[in-house]
Simulated assay, not measured.
Amino acid sequence: MIKGILFDKDGTLVEFNTLWINSTYSVIYELVKQYALGDYVGKTNKIAHFIGLKGNEVDENSLLAGKTSKDISKVIADSLHADQEKIHKEMNGLYYRYVQEHSEDIKAIGNLAALFKQLKKNQLKIGIVTADNFDVTMLTITELGIRKYIDFIGTADLYEKKPSREAMEVFCYAHSLKPDEVIHVGDTPVDMEFSKHGRFGVGVLSGVGSEETLRKYTPHIVESVQDLIDNKGNFIYSDSLLELQAY
């Protein structure tokens, strides 16, 4: 029986492109201006390409799609011949300020409050496991009005980054769940690797991962998280509905 759901954040609960593409270009540009000598736009675009940005598209297997700010800061620091720890700290601050100042760009994928309320009616524990940091994650879920529904927040500055099993283990321990009672919902290969620590993964097509790629990991593919509840208000992976799907 599925008793818990761990959600990825960006591309799964929140539209990826509306916030993270512009914010990433902005953050890189500010760092380039501080550490480089001239050709700021050219160097910004070069670093953006290194981490997976191709214009306004994101490579589904890139650092930006599935890695942490620490991973990204190493690429930026190496490119600018700067200290990674300093770049990482400055980068996190720049991202946080950008999200604060552009909170209107935090776009939920559907009505998340209604979705989470219905999942709670189906007796499910809800968690978020993201490559993002805690401060930006809290800012995001507060802006979306879903904080009260969330039982666990696992961010890359608190736990080992996905696909490590640590966040899954802590979530299960905190809520007396077994791993095979938990599913993970996400949009990238890293999410699907992480889902192997639970019952199974559910791939969503609302983010950067293609259906072809996600199907290499799981047969459970939906257009978005909104499809987790059927038109009768039932969780589609309840035991009774899973049995029907098997026939």
Rank of each mutant, 00 (worst) to 15 (best):
I2F: 12
K3A: 13
I5F: 09
F7A: 06
T12I: 10
L13K: 09
L13H: 08
L13N: 12
V14F: 04
L19G: 00
W20E: 03
N22W: 12
T24G: 00
Y25R: 04
Y25L: 04
Y25I: 03
S26P: 01
S26Q: 09
I28T: 12
Y29M: 06
Y29D: 11
K33D: 11
A36H: 12
G38C: 05
Y40R: 00
K43S: 02
K46H: 01
A48E: 03
H49G: 08
I51Y: 03
G52Y: 09
E60K: 05
E60S: 05
N61M: 13
L64W: 03
L64F: 03
A65H: 08
T68K: 12
I72Y: 01
K74E: 11
V75Y: 02
D78N: 08
S79P: 00
A82K: 11
E85V: 12
I87N: 04
H88C: 14
M91Y: 11
L94S: 05
L94Q: 09
L94I: 12
Y95P: 00
S103V: 12
D105H: 14
I106T: 10
K107Q: 13
G110M: 07
G110K: 02
A113N: 09
A114G: 14
A114E: 15
F116Q: 01
F116L: 15
Q118L: 12
Q118F: 11
N122K: 07
Q123F: 09
Q123W: 11
I126E: 02
I128P: 04
V129T: 11
L144V: 02
I146H: 09
K148L: 10
I153G: 03
T155M: 02
Y159G: 02
K161L: 06
K161G: 13
K162I: 03
P163K: 15
S164T: 00
S164R: 04
A167F: 13
V170I: 13
V170G: 01
Y173D: 14
H175P: 08
P179Q: 07
V185G: 07
D187A: 13
D191I: 00
M192I: 00
M192P: 08
K196G: 02
H197E: 08
F200V: 13
G203I: 00
V204M: 09
V208T: 15
G209F: 07
G209R: 08
T213G: 05
K216G: 11
P219L: 02
I221N: 06
V222H: 10
E223W: 14
S224W: 11
D227Y: 05
L228I: 06
L228A: 10
I229P: 06
I229V: 11
N231A: 06
I236H: 09
I236K: 08
D239M: 07
L241V: 09
Q245G: 02
